[in-house]
């Protein structure tokens, strides 16, 4: 069986004016299904660029990205949307919830695009909210929730469609340490209990300590790729 994720010589070059920025420089790595991976590295080292490509939100300049053995470079817009809908849940540093839209409706969003009937949609979204500990808050709007709660809504949205992969780009970057801790333990639980592959970008060493594998980026390259022997529980 193929690896869940495989990148081959992934390159991303940004041309902003005359300046050419090589954000990713020949990244080749594989990630197994069921992995819990921390992506680390200094600011500007290409972590977000890498995550966006893994999440099919962006395309590499050159190189290949295989998801479950399929070359994402061969898919068109709608097929990529379908992958994002069914296979990948993305969690952003800035939450990216729809304003003036209840927690429940935010979580239902991916299900709308996969055509789940309204009744079923609600049920699934309630389950997802329950699994991140937000039962009873489904009618709250994002501006009525704390940062940690908003991020949990975002996680519920990422897992509601039974995604195989959750990609989280600095999910605790805007949170206090207590909320951060809760968020990280949710990811850990999802990884262990549901077997979801979780890839987290983080700056915090203690977050990285929870994960089984740490990939460290530097100047668009993988500087280090450590596989921890033991798993510290949250």
């Amino acid at each position: 069986m193929a690896d869940l994720i495989e990148t081959r010589n992934l390159v991303k070059v940004y041309n902003s004016g005359d300046v050419k920025v090589v954000a990713l420089d020949e990244i080749s790595l594989t990630i197994d299904a069921g992995g819990l991976v921390a992506v680390m590295g200094p600011s500007g080292s290409g972590k977000s660029t890498f995550m966006n490509i893994l999440g099919c939100l962006d395309k590499p300049t050159t190189g290949k990205y295989f998801l479950e053995g399929i070359d994402m470079g061969n898919l068109d817009r709608d097929q990529l949307a379908h992958i994002r809908n069914r296979k990948i849940g993305f969690v952003f540093q800035t939450f990216n919830l729809l304003a003036r839209t209840s927690a429940l409706e935010n979580v239902e969003l991916p299900l709308i695009y996969s055509g789940v009937p309204a009744g079923k949609r609600r049920e699934m979204a309630m389950d997802a909210l329950h699994s991140v500990g937000l039962s009873g808050r489904e009618d709250h709007y994002p501006n009525q929730l704390s940062g940690g709660e908003q991020q949990r809504v975002a996680i519920a949205r990422a897992l509601v469609n039974s995604s195989a992969i959750i990609l989280a780009d600095e999910p605790t970057g805007n949170l206090d340490s207590k909320s951060s801790h809760e968020i990280i333990s949710i990811f850990q639980r999802l990884n262990i209990e549901k077997g979801i592959t979780v890839i987290i970008v983080t700056h915090e060493p203690d977050v990285a300590a929870f994960t089984r594998r740490n990939i460290i980026f530097r100047d668009g390259k993988v500087a280090e790729d450590k596989i921890a022997q033991k798993n510290t529980s949250a």
Binding site: A81, R84, Y113
Partner: peptide
């Protein structure tokens, strides 16, 4: 624009 981005990120297709 951000709302559109969010919708696309969770699987909204062009025609949606």
């Amino acid at each position: 624009t951000r709302e559109i981005g969010i919708r696309m990120a969770v699987g909204g297709r062009s025609k949606d």
